[in-house]
Design a protein around this nucleic acid. Sequence first.
DNA 1: GACTACATACCAACTGGTCGGTACTCTGCG
DNA 2: CGCAGAGTACCGACCAGTTGGTATGTAGTC
Lengths: 208, 208
Amino acid sequence: MNADRIGPSRSGGARRELLEAALSIIREKGYAATSVDELCAEAGVTKGAFFHHFRSKDALAVAAANHWSEITGAFFESAAYHKHSDPLDRVLGYLDFRKAMLKGAIAEFTCLVGTMVQEAYGTSPEIRAACEASISGHAAKVAADIADAMKHYRIRAPWTAESLALHTQVVLQGAFILAKAKGNAKVAEASIDHLRRYVEFLFRRKKT
Amino acid sequence: MNADRIGPSRSGGARRELLEAALSIIREKGYAATSVDELCAEAGVTKGAFFHHFRSKDALAVAAANHWSEITGAFFESAAYHKHSDPLDRVLGYLDFRKAMLKGAIAEFTCLVGTMVQEAYGTSPEIRAACEASISGHAAKVAADIADAMKHYRIRAPWTAESLALHTQVVLQGAFILAKAKGNAKVAEASIDHLRRYVEFLFRRKKT
DNA sequence: GACTACATACCAACTGGTCGGTACTCTGCG
DNA sequence: CGCAGAGTACCGACCAGTTGGTATGTAGTC
Protein backbone atom coordinates (compact mmCIF):
# COMPACT_ATOMS: atom_id res chain seq x y z
CA MET A 1 0.00 0.00 0.00
CA ASN A 2 1.16 3.48 -0.76
CA ALA A 3 -1.28 4.80 1.79
CA ASP A 4 1.11 4.93 4.70
CA ARG A 5 3.58 7.41 3.36
CA ILE A 6 3.53 9.47 6.48
CA GLY A 7 6.35 8.86 8.90
CA PRO A 8 9.31 6.59 8.60
CA SER A 9 9.15 3.22 7.01
CA ARG A 10 7.36 0.71 9.16
CA SER A 11 8.89 -2.39 7.72
CA GLY A 12 12.28 -2.19 9.37
CA GLY A 13 13.03 -4.64 12.11
CA ALA A 14 16.14 -2.61 12.82
CA ARG A 15 14.14 0.43 13.81
CA ARG A 16 12.08 -1.47 16.31
CA GLU A 17 15.14 -3.24 17.68
CA LEU A 18 16.90 0.09 18.16
CA LEU A 19 13.91 1.57 19.92
CA GLU A 20 13.66 -1.43 22.20
CA ALA A 21 17.38 -1.24 22.94
CA ALA A 22 16.99 2.44 23.77
CA LEU A 23 14.28 1.71 26.33
CA SER A 24 16.40 -0.70 28.31
CA ILE A 25 19.83 0.91 28.03
CA ILE A 26 18.78 4.50 28.61
CA ARG A 27 16.76 3.51 31.65
CA GLU A 28 19.82 1.81 33.03
CA LYS A 29 22.56 4.33 32.30
CA GLY A 30 20.85 7.51 31.29
CA TYR A 31 20.74 9.14 27.88
CA ALA A 32 24.09 10.90 27.60
CA ALA A 33 26.02 7.88 28.86
CA THR A 34 24.39 5.65 26.27
CA SER A 35 26.41 5.58 23.08
CA VAL A 36 25.14 4.97 19.60
CA ASP A 37 27.52 2.05 19.22
CA GLU A 38 26.11 0.48 22.35
CA LEU A 39 22.58 0.88 21.09
CA CYS A 40 23.56 -0.75 17.80
CA ALA A 41 25.28 -3.64 19.54
CA GLU A 42 22.26 -4.29 21.76
CA ALA A 43 19.91 -4.08 18.80
CA GLY A 44 22.15 -6.26 16.67
CA VAL A 45 22.46 -3.74 13.85
CA THR A 46 25.22 -1.57 12.47
CA LYS A 47 25.69 2.14 12.60
CA GLY A 48 24.59 2.46 9.03
CA ALA A 49 21.23 1.09 10.05
CA PHE A 50 21.03 3.50 12.96
CA PHE A 51 21.58 6.59 10.87
CA HIS A 52 19.38 5.22 8.15
CA HIS A 53 16.43 5.26 10.55
CA PHE A 54 17.35 8.24 12.72
CA ARG A 55 18.89 11.52 11.67
CA SER A 56 20.80 11.77 14.91
CA LYS A 57 21.07 10.40 18.39
CA ASP A 58 18.66 13.08 19.57
CA ALA A 59 16.14 12.02 16.94
CA LEU A 60 16.35 8.50 18.33
CA ALA A 61 15.60 9.89 21.76
CA VAL A 62 12.50 11.66 20.49
CA ALA A 63 11.35 8.51 18.71
CA ALA A 64 12.05 6.48 21.85
CA ALA A 65 9.91 8.85 23.93
CA ASN A 66 7.06 8.51 21.45
CA HIS A 67 7.53 4.76 21.36
CA TRP A 68 7.40 4.78 25.15
CA SER A 69 4.11 6.66 25.04
CA GLU A 70 2.63 4.02 22.76
CA ILE A 71 3.93 1.07 24.76
CA THR A 72 2.84 2.39 28.12
CA GLY A 73 -0.41 3.72 26.70
CA ALA A 74 -1.37 0.27 25.48
CA PHE A 75 -0.14 -1.32 28.69
CA PHE A 76 -2.26 0.82 31.00
CA GLU A 77 -5.22 0.73 28.63
CA SER A 78 -5.43 -3.02 29.06
CA ALA A 79 -5.04 -2.99 32.85
CA ALA A 80 -7.84 -4.37 34.98
CA TYR A 81 -8.49 -1.26 37.09
CA HIS A 82 -10.46 0.28 34.22
CA LYS A 83 -13.24 -2.23 34.87
CA HIS A 84 -14.41 -0.57 38.07
CA SER A 85 -17.66 1.26 37.59
CA ASP A 86 -16.92 3.71 40.38
CA PRO A 87 -14.45 6.23 38.95
CA LEU A 88 -12.79 6.62 42.33
CA ASP A 89 -12.12 2.90 42.35
CA ARG A 90 -10.44 3.35 39.01
CA VAL A 91 -8.19 6.06 40.42
CA LEU A 92 -7.29 4.05 43.51
CA GLY A 93 -6.95 0.95 41.36
CA TYR A 94 -4.50 2.85 39.19
CA LEU A 95 -2.38 3.66 42.23
CA ASP A 96 -2.51 0.05 43.41
CA PHE A 97 -1.50 -1.02 39.94
CA ARG A 98 1.44 1.38 39.89
CA LYS A 99 2.52 0.09 43.28
CA ALA A 100 2.28 -3.52 42.14
CA MET A 101 4.51 -2.68 39.19
CA LEU A 102 7.47 -1.92 41.45
CA LYS A 103 9.00 -5.36 41.09
CA GLY A 104 12.26 -6.64 39.70
CA ALA A 105 15.29 -4.58 38.77
CA ILE A 106 15.00 -0.83 39.16
CA ALA A 107 15.58 -0.12 35.49
CA GLU A 108 12.62 -2.33 34.67
CA PHE A 109 9.98 -0.32 36.47
CA THR A 110 11.32 3.22 36.16
CA CYS A 111 10.21 5.73 33.57
CA LEU A 112 12.15 6.34 30.36
CA VAL A 113 10.91 9.86 29.78
CA GLY A 114 11.39 10.91 33.39
CA THR A 115 14.99 9.81 33.11
CA MET A 116 15.59 11.45 29.75
CA VAL A 117 13.95 14.80 30.43
CA GLN A 118 16.19 15.28 33.43
CA GLU A 119 19.24 15.25 31.17
CA ALA A 120 17.83 16.85 28.06
CA TYR A 121 15.50 19.60 29.24
CA GLY A 122 18.19 22.21 28.89
CA THR A 123 19.93 20.99 25.78
CA SER A 124 17.26 19.59 23.48
CA PRO A 125 13.84 21.24 23.16
CA GLU A 126 12.64 18.36 20.95
CA ILE A 127 13.42 15.69 23.53
CA ARG A 128 11.97 17.81 26.31
CA ALA A 129 8.75 18.28 24.35
CA ALA A 130 8.45 14.57 23.55
CA CYS A 131 8.92 13.67 27.22
CA GLU A 132 6.48 16.32 28.32
CA ALA A 133 3.90 15.00 25.88
CA SER A 134 4.38 11.48 27.19
CA ILE A 135 3.91 12.45 30.83
CA SER A 136 1.07 14.87 30.20
CA GLY A 137 -0.68 12.42 27.90
CA HIS A 138 -0.61 9.77 30.58
CA ALA A 139 -1.65 12.26 33.25
CA ALA A 140 -4.62 13.29 31.12
CA LYS A 141 -5.99 9.77 31.24
CA VAL A 142 -5.68 9.70 35.01
CA ALA A 143 -7.26 13.15 35.14
CA ALA A 144 -10.30 11.88 33.26
CA ASP A 145 -11.05 9.33 35.96
CA ILE A 146 -10.38 11.88 38.67
CA ALA A 147 -12.77 14.32 37.03
CA ASP A 148 -15.43 11.62 36.85
CA ALA A 149 -14.86 10.81 40.49
CA MET A 150 -15.17 14.47 41.46
CA LYS A 151 -18.44 14.67 39.62
CA HIS A 152 -19.72 11.40 41.04
CA TYR A 153 -18.86 12.30 44.62
CA ARG A 154 -19.75 15.94 44.13
CA ILE A 155 -16.37 17.17 45.23
CA ARG A 156 -15.91 20.89 45.13
CA ALA A 157 -12.31 21.73 45.82
CA PRO A 158 -9.57 24.33 45.36
CA TRP A 159 -7.62 21.80 43.29
CA THR A 160 -8.42 20.52 39.80
CA ALA A 161 -8.55 16.99 38.45
CA GLU A 162 -5.61 17.84 36.23
CA SER A 163 -3.46 19.10 39.08
CA LEU A 164 -4.17 16.00 41.15
CA ALA A 165 -3.36 13.79 38.18
CA LEU A 166 -0.07 15.63 37.71
CA HIS A 167 0.58 15.22 41.41
CA THR A 168 0.29 11.45 41.01
CA GLN A 169 2.93 11.63 38.30
CA VAL A 170 5.11 13.83 40.48
CA VAL A 171 4.94 11.25 43.26
CA LEU A 172 5.74 8.41 40.88
CA GLN A 173 8.70 10.20 39.29
CA GLY A 174 10.02 11.21 42.68
CA ALA A 175 9.53 7.69 43.98
CA PHE A 176 11.71 6.38 41.16
CA ILE A 177 14.50 8.78 42.10
CA LEU A 178 14.43 7.80 45.75
CA ALA A 179 14.30 4.13 44.76
CA LYS A 180 17.39 4.65 42.61
CA ALA A 181 19.15 6.46 45.43
CA LYS A 182 18.33 3.83 48.02
CA GLY A 183 18.75 0.89 45.70
CA ASN A 184 15.35 -0.60 46.36
CA ALA A 185 11.69 0.05 45.79
CA LYS A 186 10.40 0.07 49.36
CA VAL A 187 10.56 3.82 49.64
CA ALA A 188 8.56 4.08 46.43
CA GLU A 189 5.88 1.78 47.78
CA ALA A 190 5.62 3.80 50.97
CA SER A 191 5.24 6.99 48.98
CA ILE A 192 2.45 5.55 46.87
CA ASP A 193 0.76 4.53 50.13
CA HIS A 194 0.92 8.15 51.24
CA LEU A 195 -0.47 9.28 47.91
CA ARG A 196 -3.32 6.78 48.13
CA ARG A 197 -4.16 7.97 51.64
CA TYR A 198 -4.24 11.52 50.36
CA VAL A 199 -6.60 10.65 47.54
CA GLU A 200 -8.88 8.74 49.92
CA PHE A 201 -8.94 11.81 52.13
CA LEU A 202 -9.78 14.15 49.27
CA PHE A 203 -12.74 11.96 48.34
CA ARG A 204 -13.71 11.28 51.97
CA ARG A 205 -13.39 7.59 51.53
CA LYS A 206 -12.82 5.47 54.60
CA LYS A 207 -9.94 3.06 54.50
CA THR A 208 -11.13 -0.32 53.27
CA MET B 1 57.51 41.50 50.86
CA ASN B 2 55.10 41.47 47.97
CA ALA B 3 52.20 42.75 49.99
CA ASP B 4 49.86 42.45 47.03
CA ARG B 5 48.51 38.97 46.99
CA ILE B 6 50.05 37.93 43.75
CA GLY B 7 49.95 34.35 42.75
CA PRO B 8 48.09 31.39 44.13
CA SER B 9 48.06 32.32 47.78
CA ARG B 10 44.38 31.44 47.66
CA SER B 11 45.15 27.81 48.34
CA GLY B 12 42.28 25.42 47.83
CA GLY B 13 40.64 28.00 45.59
CA ALA B 14 40.69 25.72 42.59
CA ARG B 15 38.96 22.93 44.42
CA ARG B 16 36.16 25.17 45.58
CA GLU B 17 35.81 26.71 42.11
CA LEU B 18 35.55 23.25 40.56
CA LEU B 19 32.93 22.17 43.08
CA GLU B 20 30.94 25.33 42.46
CA ALA B 21 31.20 24.82 38.69
CA ALA B 22 30.00 21.24 39.13
CA LEU B 23 26.88 22.39 40.98
CA SER B 24 25.77 24.71 38.22
CA ILE B 25 26.80 22.77 35.12
CA ILE B 26 25.65 19.32 36.25
CA ARG B 27 22.28 20.70 37.29
CA GLU B 28 21.93 22.21 33.84
CA LYS B 29 23.15 19.41 31.60
CA GLY B 30 23.36 16.33 33.76
CA TYR B 31 26.45 14.50 34.92
CA ALA B 32 27.45 12.40 31.91
CA ALA B 33 27.04 15.29 29.49
CA THR B 34 29.31 17.48 31.59
CA SER B 35 32.93 17.12 30.53
CA VAL B 36 35.97 17.65 32.67
CA ASP B 37 37.22 20.29 30.24
CA GLU B 38 33.97 22.17 30.60
CA LEU B 39 34.19 22.07 34.37
CA CYS B 40 37.74 23.39 34.19
CA ALA B 41 36.77 26.20 31.84
CA GLU B 42 33.90 27.29 34.07
CA ALA B 43 36.09 27.11 37.16
CA GLY B 44 38.92 28.95 35.41
CA VAL B 45 41.47 26.25 36.11
CA THR B 46 43.36 23.72 34.02
CA LYS B 47 43.02 20.01 33.79
CA GLY B 48 46.13 19.55 35.84
CA ALA B 49 44.42 21.33 38.69
CA PHE B 50 41.35 19.15 38.29
CA PHE B 51 43.23 15.89 38.60
CA HIS B 52 45.38 17.31 41.33
CA HIS B 53 42.30 17.75 43.51
CA PHE B 54 40.20 14.80 42.29
CA ARG B 55 41.32 11.32 41.38
CA SER B 56 38.70 11.07 38.66
CA LYS B 57 35.54 12.62 37.32
CA ASP B 58 33.54 10.26 39.50
CA ALA B 59 35.50 11.39 42.56
CA LEU B 60 34.51 14.96 41.71
CA ALA B 61 30.90 13.85 41.60
CA VAL B 62 31.13 12.31 45.04
CA ALA B 63 32.81 15.44 46.39
CA ALA B 64 30.17 17.59 44.73
CA ALA B 65 27.40 15.58 46.37
CA ASN B 66 29.04 16.03 49.77
CA HIS B 67 29.59 19.70 49.07
CA TRP B 68 25.92 19.94 48.16
CA SER B 69 24.97 18.37 51.48
CA GLU B 70 27.00 20.98 53.34
CA ILE B 71 25.70 23.92 51.34
CA THR B 72 22.06 22.94 51.56
CA GLY B 73 22.45 21.83 55.17
CA ALA B 74 23.68 25.25 56.18
CA PHE B 75 21.07 26.94 54.01
CA PHE B 76 18.09 25.17 55.56
CA GLU B 77 19.59 25.37 59.03
CA SER B 78 19.46 29.13 58.86
CA ALA B 79 15.93 29.32 57.47
CA ALA B 80 13.27 31.11 59.47
CA TYR B 81 10.79 28.25 59.74
CA HIS B 82 12.86 26.69 62.52
CA LYS B 83 11.73 29.49 64.83
CA HIS B 84 8.19 28.16 65.19
CA SER B 85 7.61 26.61 68.58
CA ASP B 86 4.89 24.31 67.26
CA PRO B 87 6.70 21.48 65.46
CA LEU B 88 3.86 21.17 62.96
CA ASP B 89 4.38 24.81 62.05
CA ARG B 90 7.99 23.97 61.39
CA VAL B 91 6.99 21.16 59.05
CA LEU B 92 4.46 23.28 57.19
CA GLY B 93 6.90 26.18 57.23
CA TYR B 94 9.46 23.92 55.62
CA LEU B 95 7.04 23.12 52.80
CA ASP B 96 6.21 26.80 52.33
CA PHE B 97 9.90 27.53 52.24
CA ARG B 98 10.52 24.87 49.61
CA LYS B 99 7.68 26.28 47.55
CA ALA B 100 9.04 29.80 47.83
CA MET B 101 12.39 28.55 46.56
CA LEU B 102 10.93 27.68 43.16
CA LYS B 103 12.00 30.91 41.54
CA GLY B 104 14.33 31.79 38.71
CA ALA B 105 15.84 29.41 36.20
CA ILE B 106 15.04 25.74 36.63
CA ALA B 107 18.65 24.72 37.13
CA GLU B 108 18.86 27.14 40.03
CA PHE B 109 16.25 25.52 42.21
CA THR B 110 16.55 21.85 41.28
CA CYS B 111 18.51 19.28 43.23
CA LEU B 112 22.05 18.27 42.28
CA VAL B 113 21.95 14.84 43.89
CA GLY B 114 18.52 14.00 42.51
CA THR B 115 19.85 14.73 39.05
CA MET B 116 23.08 12.81 39.52
CA VAL B 117 21.69 9.70 41.14
CA GLN B 118 19.36 9.21 38.20
CA GLU B 119 22.34 8.80 35.90
CA ALA B 120 24.81 7.14 38.23
CA TYR B 121 22.80 4.70 40.34
CA GLY B 122 23.61 1.82 38.02
CA THR B 123 27.17 2.68 37.14
CA SER B 124 28.80 4.18 40.23
CA PRO B 125 28.04 2.83 43.71
CA GLU B 126 30.09 5.65 45.26
CA ILE B 127 28.08 8.40 43.61
CA ARG B 128 24.84 6.62 44.40
CA ALA B 129 25.80 6.33 48.06
CA ALA B 130 26.82 9.98 48.29
CA CYS B 131 23.53 11.08 46.77
CA GLU B 132 21.57 8.75 49.00
CA ALA B 133 23.35 10.15 52.05
CA SER B 134 22.54 13.68 50.99
CA ILE B 135 18.85 13.01 50.50
CA SER B 136 18.46 10.83 53.58
CA GLY B 137 20.42 13.27 55.71
CA HIS B 138 18.12 16.09 54.73
CA ALA B 139 15.04 13.89 55.18
CA ALA B 140 16.19 12.99 58.68
CA LYS B 141 16.04 16.63 59.71
CA VAL B 142 12.52 16.93 58.37
CA ALA B 143 11.65 13.65 60.09
CA ALA B 144 12.74 15.07 63.44
CA ASP B 145 10.20 17.88 63.23
CA ILE B 146 7.53 15.46 62.03
CA ALA B 147 8.25 13.15 64.95
CA ASP B 148 7.96 16.07 67.36
CA ALA B 149 4.68 17.06 65.76
CA MET B 150 3.34 13.52 66.05
CA LYS B 151 4.21 13.52 69.72
CA HIS B 152 2.81 16.98 70.33
CA TYR B 153 -0.48 16.25 68.58
CA ARG B 154 -0.57 12.69 69.82
CA ILE B 155 -0.84 11.23 66.38
CA ARG B 156 -0.94 7.47 66.20
CA ALA B 157 -0.71 6.34 62.62
CA PRO B 158 0.19 3.48 60.31
CA TRP B 159 2.95 5.66 58.83
CA THR B 160 6.19 6.76 60.46
CA ALA B 161 7.78 10.19 60.70
CA GLU B 162 10.62 8.91 58.56
CA SER B 163 8.33 7.66 55.80
CA LEU B 164 6.45 10.95 55.68
CA ALA B 165 9.73 12.86 55.56
CA LEU B 166 10.89 10.70 52.67
CA HIS B 167 7.55 11.30 51.00
CA THR B 168 8.20 15.05 51.11
CA GLN B 169 11.49 14.43 49.34
CA VAL B 170 9.77 12.19 46.81
CA VAL B 171 7.31 14.96 46.02
CA LEU B 172 10.06 17.54 45.70
CA GLN B 173 12.21 15.39 43.42
CA GLY B 174 9.22 14.50 41.29
CA ALA B 175 8.17 18.13 41.17
CA PHE B 176 11.58 19.02 39.77
CA ILE B 177 11.20 16.45 37.00
CA LEU B 178 7.78 17.69 35.99
CA ALA B 179 9.03 21.27 36.13
CA LYS B 180 11.87 20.32 33.79
CA ALA B 181 9.47 18.56 31.45
CA LYS B 182 7.02 21.44 31.36
CA GLY B 183 9.63 24.16 31.37
CA ASN B 184 8.22 25.99 34.35
CA ALA B 185 7.73 25.64 38.07
CA LYS B 186 3.96 26.01 38.33
CA VAL B 187 3.37 22.28 38.37
CA ALA B 188 5.91 21.98 41.18
CA GLU B 189 4.11 24.61 43.22
CA ALA B 190 0.80 22.84 42.73
CA SER B 191 2.30 19.58 43.87
CA ILE B 192 3.71 21.11 47.03
CA ASP B 193 0.23 22.52 47.68
CA HIS B 194 -1.13 18.98 47.47
CA LEU B 195 1.57 17.76 49.81
CA ARG B 196 0.84 20.53 52.31
CA ARG B 197 -2.86 19.67 52.23
CA TYR B 198 -1.98 16.04 52.91
CA VAL B 199 0.17 16.94 55.90
CA GLU B 200 -2.55 19.22 57.28
CA PHE B 201 -4.97 16.33 56.94
CA LEU B 202 -2.66 13.88 58.69
CA PHE B 203 -2.37 16.26 61.64
CA ARG B 204 -6.04 17.27 61.54
CA ARG B 205 -5.19 20.91 61.13
CA LYS B 206 -7.81 23.16 59.59
CA LYS B 207 -6.74 25.26 56.70
CA THR B 208 -5.58 28.67 57.84
C1' DG C 1 16.78 1.64 -12.95
C1' DA C 2 15.19 3.61 -8.81
C1' DC C 3 14.43 2.81 -4.14
C1' DT C 4 14.80 0.74 0.43
C1' DA C 5 17.33 -1.21 3.99
C1' DC C 6 20.89 -2.08 5.58
C1' DA C 7 26.61 -3.11 6.05
C1' DT C 8 31.46 -1.53 6.23
C1' DA C 9 34.99 1.56 6.63
C1' DC C 10 36.22 5.65 8.09
C1' DC C 11 36.82 10.46 10.23
C1' DA C 12 37.46 14.74 12.93
C1' DA C 13 36.41 16.10 17.33
C1' DC C 14 36.30 15.15 21.75
C1' DT C 15 36.76 12.14 26.00
C1' DG C 16 38.83 11.15 30.67
C1' DG C 17 43.20 10.81 32.24
C1' DT C 18 48.67 11.25 32.45
C1' DC C 19 52.94 13.44 33.06
C1' DG C 20 56.92 16.36 33.36
C1' DG C 21 57.61 20.77 34.84
C1' DT C 22 57.09 25.31 37.64
C1' DA C 23 56.22 28.43 41.33
C1' DC C 24 55.47 28.97 45.78
C1' DT C 25 55.27 27.59 50.99
C1' DC C 26 56.42 25.19 55.04
C1' DT C 27 59.91 22.75 58.10
C1' DG C 28 63.89 21.89 60.39
C1' DC C 29 68.68 22.37 61.16
C1' DG C 30 72.74 24.80 62.00
C1' DC D 1 69.21 34.41 60.65
C1' DG D 2 70.07 31.49 55.99
C1' DC D 3 69.03 27.78 53.31
C1' DA D 4 68.40 23.01 51.75
C1' DG D 5 64.74 19.97 50.98
C1' DA D 6 60.18 18.24 51.10
C1' DG D 7 55.60 19.20 49.99
C1' DT D 8 51.56 21.60 47.80
C1' DA D 9 49.18 23.66 44.12
C1' DC D 10 48.87 24.21 39.73
C1' DC D 11 49.96 24.37 34.52
C1' DG D 12 49.33 22.73 29.79
C1' DA D 13 50.99 19.61 26.31
C1' DC D 14 49.96 15.16 25.34
C1' DC D 15 47.84 10.37 24.93
C1' DA D 16 44.98 6.45 23.64
C1' DG D 17 40.41 5.42 23.21
C1' DT D 18 35.65 6.75 22.13
C1' DT D 19 32.24 9.78 20.30
C1' DG D 20 28.45 11.05 16.98
C1' DG D 21 28.23 11.22 12.36
C1' DT D 22 29.35 10.28 7.14
C1' DA D 23 30.56 8.24 2.59
C1' DT D 24 30.23 4.53 -0.06
C1' DG D 25 28.87 -0.03 -1.32
C1' DT D 26 25.42 -3.66 -2.08
C1' DA D 27 21.67 -7.14 -1.85
C1' DG D 28 16.92 -7.40 -2.47
C1' DT D 29 12.36 -5.41 -4.08
C1' DC D 30 9.21 -2.64 -6.95
